[in-house]
């Protein structure tokens, strides 16, 4: 069933700074909803213990996935994001919950495109505190260690036939 847990109170952090939540009015689904029946691009919210494999067949319909961080010290969302990317999900990926400015780089490097934070946190950790990390997004030991053959992702069967989602952010 569609669940609208979202409201206009979120501030979205991207590499170019704070912006309004353009997905606030979008149709929200949770995993329990029937993904197959949906034909328009949708926005799926998942918890950080979601099994990502069952989402593979729906990748083509998903324009955005949001992974919830119940607490900023609970790092499961980083691994889940990395796994979704490895499984071939190329749509928009958002981290929602209680991440702090100091984690923005980790989120970006794990595969997230953006972080959604509360207005309250945005007031305490202002835009420039989040932007302070931007120049370090590309600075990573992990990518430096690897042979430069370009990124490889697993290609689950059928994914190639998918059309890209309609509201990919950027």
């Amino acid at each position: 069933m569609p669940v609208n847990s979202c409201n206009g109170d979120l501030v979205i952090v991207r590499d170019d700074g704070f912006r309004k939540d353009d997905l606030a009015d979008c149709e929200h689904l949770t995993v329990e909803a029937e993904l197959q029946g949906v034909e328009s691009p949708v926005f799926l919210e998942i918890s950080n213990d979601q099994d990502p494999d069952i989402l593979i067949p729906s990748f083509c319909w998903l324009s955005a996935i949001s992974i919830r961080f119940p607490d900023f010290v609970d790092g499961r969302g980083f691994s889940l994001a990395a796994r979704l990317r490895q499984l071939g999900y190329t749509g928009r990926l958002r981290a929602t919950g209680s991440l702090i400015a100091d984690q923005y780089r980790l989120a970006r490097q794990s595969g997230f495109d953006e972080v959604a934070i509360s207005r309250r946190l945005a007031a305490r950790q202002t835009e420039h505190q989040w932007l302070a990390q931007m120049d370090r997004v590309a600075m990573s030991y992990q990518s430096r260690l690897l042979k430069t053959t370009g990124p490889i992702t697993e290609k689950p069967t059928g994914l190639r036939a998918c059309l890209p989602g309609g509201i990919r952010g950027g």
């Binding site: 980083f78 984690q103 980790l106 030991y141 992990q142």
Partner: peptide, 16 residues
């Protein structure tokens, strides 16, 4: 040393 570099600031494994 390889593991030092690989583990340093590994984005996935900072909040285990």
């Amino acid at each position: 040393e390889l593991l030092r570099q690989w583990s340093t600031d590994h984005p996935e494994f900072q909040y285990l």
